[in-house]
Amino acid sequence: MQLVEKESGEVTVLELGGRLDSNTSKVLEDKVMEILGQGKKKVLMDFADVDYINSTGLRVLLLALQQLKKIQGKLVLSSIKDYMKEVFEISGYTEIFPIYPTQAEALANFS
């Protein structure tokens, strides 16, 4: 899994790539905990280069959302590949995560 962290105003942008699975999701979980530890409350995860996610990866997203909600923070997702969208729906994630087609649209949602 690739992970690039950027700042856009108050928003922490995590550009993810590759596979979010049982072997790699811990990297994202650790990054989320680090961001929370820094007191950051606005997080955008960009899935443009993610080509695989399983329930371990999905679990990390839910964990991040729950932690951010506790501190009145916000987690927004963007750029999920079409072929993976149904799995986000089946998981019920389209109901609890704001999901945008592009990173730019997701960023606009924070302002």
């Binding site: 399983n54 329930s55 999905l58 679990r59 839910l62 964990l63 959302l65 729950q66 909600k69 506790k70 799995v87 089946i90 998981s91 019920g92 109901e95 609890i96």
Partner: peptide, 22 residues
Amino acid sequence: DVNAPADERPIGGLGIHLVRSI
């Protein structure tokens, strides 16, 4: 329960739900 509000969702158990849904 994949319809529960975010803060009440159990962490885990999703894998088997995905299998049965797909």
